[in-house]
Design a protein around this nucleic acid. Structure first.
Lengths: 381, 381
DNA sequence: AATATTTTCGTGTACGTACACGAAAACTAA
DNA sequence: TTAGTTTTCGTGTACGTACACGAAAATATT
């Protein structure tokens, strides 16, 4: 029989248990505030804290009988381990790896996730968590897998991936599955894998939002151009979904439909882009709105300015340093924000919750589709 | 002379110090990863950890000589106390109080902050933090101060306040100052006080955003009505700023100006509201847009539906359960979201950072002005 | 100089958990 | 039964900090 300390709450627990009426309610009603510790459980089970610890961590070396007994008590009292004490005692530090595209000179989009990573780590570094970020090039074919291998070599406890190159990322996810390393995606997703979660935007819906805005901008009798710049390089489905969503809006919309045109440009060169745009606009002079499916919208903005086409409404994606000046000047009417900072931040926090705190994490964390215009820009930067 | 343990990093520290070249850089370069503990400091200072602890907490009973010595080492090594160990050791629990309007049957706006509070507490309860929320009525004159007094009676370690009734809140803030209880504001602000921080929206700018949206919605030749419903009851400046911002946009805007009209309605009764609106719209048939300066926009939406005025563009505030159906149907074109959940969440986190972690907190945390329409609504709810 | 008083400091225990080590109990083999 | 083996468990120490208690050192008093 356990030695009963003269602590009120323990007596309460104990009474409940010797009665055989092992009821959570009755305990909780007795002392709702006091936190249950393994010491309490040990006392109630008539064993030592070491034994309780072994049961909780499935470390074996405990007879089935006492194991069940301890588990029963644990569940009944709804024991929650003290995260502070736990991480303090276990000096093991959890190491995360983040794999994402490098910031190329063509667009600064991938700068933003870096500060999200920093923010997340600052918040959880107390818990002994570190992160190492690995950058791949979306332009070099084998870059992703090379870089990913480096990350793997360090045997991290969890990996956050921006799977911009789908096939390679898919391959890598399988390797992670084999090696039982948990991983999460951000920015773009690959369906049907074992990712802990995906943090990002619903890309179809974001296209719909773009269309809605375009609709508000434009009068009744005009045409719209949807521009994709170098979309095949990137996470195709992501970009294509935006286009698809945009088109869908106008298909389902009752009332005056607008005519849509589509243009694919596979170049980052302003000259190439200008001539393509010039040609299209010449052919279809009724175009009053241009929707660009990714962050390369600033190319089109430059074109509009240089050709003095102020009557054209321009909508695109992402608050990159290239795009922002054109939003401020009004050349770009709206930018749809993907919340790149929150994406990486939430991704790491999700890994932390799952791996360290062992909490459940939703399979998809869909971030808001922010509508950004000149007037509310300052609060999103 | 302190007893040198054969731990590499300590020898490193020690070497640095006996040389007299007490340089942070040299230490950090030696062992950048190892965390400095009070034990390290004690060893280096040739005292016990108890003494170091006394110095760190300004608890006195230490000679000036060793105090300075310890402080010097502490600063040089950039000692950061371990929050986990610290909160584990001190079983004192920090108690916060939140004071905000009660959810009235007229509008569900104040439901949202409750979940923000819950979220924040869930995140920081490990640190022994609790919160008790107090509700006042904006309709009863002395309700705020009564409720606030109750909060004060519990002698909380920090108070989060939604100062919707300005004069009373001001008075109360002064009491808090006297009693040296730190406080923060959310949702609306009172300038020039000693609040730790204000979390909320820039209300002037939000009016400007509303105007911009209205501008996009409307054609060239039309008039706009600005409606304030029961605005004198609430945090006046907040509501008035929105109106002011809205007007400012059209004043500063070059090009075709639009004519603005203003309507104040001091009733929640649909009958009253309808007749006021009906009268105004009859007088000014050219009105094509209505901007409502608070969450009572659903009244106007109901009016528009019942009078079948589908040509009117309606813009207002807040994703309340009353407003959302009208946004979904399209009767309301846009709602400006104040992020009420994040407001209370960030408010409590700010208190936590300041009081518990002793971190610096910005004097103003201005949350984004979310533009919400039918198509991106689902990600803000 | 001896004692009293104050200042200064070291030691010990606690917080709740993790884990190593070894002792006791249970079981096996002879 | 006894020794050997395995299973099961208790004890001790550590993580980094907080704080009480009391001892030692410094100072004051007679």
């Amino acid at each position: 029989m356990p030695n009963i300390l003269n602590i009120a709450h323990l007596i309460n627990i104990y009474t409940v248990f010797v009665n055989g009426n092992l009821s959570k309610t009755s305990y909780v009603m007795a002392k709702p505030d006091k936190k249950i510790t393994i010491k309490d459980i040990a006392l109630l089970a008539g064993v030592s804290i070491g034994t309780v610890d072994r049961v909780i961590h499935n470390r074996g070396e405990v007879s089935e009988k006492t194991r069940v007994k301890i588990l029963r008590i644990t569940e009944t009292l709804n024991y929650q381990p003290d995260v502070l004490a736990s991480t303090l005692a276990s000096k093991k530090n959890v190491r995360f790896a983040t794999i994402m595209p490098k910031v190329d000179k063509e667009s600064s989009f991938w700068k933003a996730p870096l500060s999200g990573i920093e923010k997340a780590i600052k918040e959880i570094e107390h818990y002994g968590i570190t992160n190492k970020t690995y950058f791949f090039s979306v332009f070099e074919k084998n870059s992703f897998l090379e870089v990913a291998q480096k990350a793997l070599d360090e045997n991290p406890d969890g990996i956050l991936i921006a799977p911009s190159v789908q096939e390679e990322a898919l391959q890598f996810a399988n390797i992670c599955d084999e090696r039982k390393i948990p991983y999460a995606f951000f920015n773009s997703n690959i369906a049907e894998l074992n990712q802990i979660t995906y943090v990002g935007q619903d890309s179809i819906q974001s296209g719909i939002v773009g269309a809605k805005l375009m609709d508000y901008c434009l009068g009744t009798n005009c045409e719209i151009l949807v521009v994709s710049i170098y979309s095949f390089l990137k996470n195709n489905t992501h970009i294509q979904n935006r286009k698809q969503g945009f088109i869908k809006y106008y298909e389902t919309k009752s009332g005056a439909k607008k005519q849509l045109h589509s243009l694919e440009i596979n170049s980052f060169n302003d000259g190439d882009i200008y001539s393509e745009l010039r040609k299209t606009l010449k052919e279809k002079p009724n175009i009053k709105g241009i929707f660009v499916t990714n962050s390369r919208v600033f190319h089109v903005a430059r074109f509009i300015e240089s050709e003095k086409l102020s009557h054209i409404n321009l909508i695109g994606y992402d608050l990159t340093t290239e795009n922002i000046p054109y939003l401020e000047k009004g050349t770009i009417s709206f930018l749809i924000n993907q919340k790149p900072i929150e994406q990486s931040y939430s991704g790491l926090i999700a890994l932390f919750n799952k791996i360290v705190l062992k909490k459940d994490v939703p399979k998809e964390i869909l971030l808001p589709i922010d509508i950004v215009t000149r007037e509310n820009l300052m609060y999103y930067e």
